[in-house]
């Protein structure tokens, strides 16, 4: 998969209450959740998100509760990729299960500046910072998770299994 877009930066330990505050968890609708994406960080954060936004985060992104509404809110706001130093583990599983691409970059994530134009090629495991003209190698995604990704997420993966495929 290939993605191109501008970096929108957030800090370390962005928790799921920041991604989608609990008071909005009275729905499972992705579009509705998307309206409140990251409103626990800043009230009107949604307005900063453009159609080509790539969210760039620090350490432990998605820590806190297990709410799957968190990746859904990000997807609902139109973001398809999050690049971070590291992810909290429940969020990491949830992201892939929902079809949100999560890429770990470690310490080098700090070199990306707000608004930098990024190109991501998952087949090459590379992230190119076009603005700064530098390339980063991404931490590899485990084989089993790739199987889920290839199926299109955990729901189609389960569907195949139920159909005996």
């Amino acid at each position: 998969m290939f993605y191109k877009g501008k970096a929108l930066k957030v800090g370390d330990h962005i928790d799921t209450d920041a991604i989608i505050p609990a008071r909005f968890l009275v729905t499972t609708d992705m579009e509705e959740l998307g309206k409140h994406c990251l409103s626990g960080l800043e009230e009107n954060f949604r307005q900063k998100i453009q159609p080509d936004t790539i969210l760039v985060a620090g350490k432990n992104f998605g820590c806190g509760s297990s709410r799957e509404h968190a990746p859904l809110a990000i997807l609902g706001a139109g973001i398809k990729v999050v690049v971070a130093h590291s992810f909290a583990r429940i969020f990491y599983r949830n992201g892939f299960n929902m079809g949100l691409l999560l890429l770990e970059l470690g310490d080098r994530v700090g070199e990306i500046a707000e608004g930098d134009l990024l190109e991501i090629d998952t087949t090459q495991n590379m992230l190119k910072n076009v603005t700064q003209n530098v390339e980063f190698e991404l931490n590899p995604i485990s084989e089993f998770i790739q199987k889920i990704l290839q199926a299109g997420g955990l729901i189609p993966f389960a569907k195949q299994r139920l159909q005996g495929a």
């Binding site: 297990s66 709410r67 799957e68 990746p71 599983r93 949830n94 299960n97 929902m98 955990l154 729901i155």
Partner: peptide, 12 residues
């Protein structure tokens, strides 16, 4: 803890 869809998979 896991997300809802992981739990759905385990329910099945």
């Amino acid at each position: 803890g896991l997300g809802s869809t992981d739990i759905a998979y385990a329910m099945a």
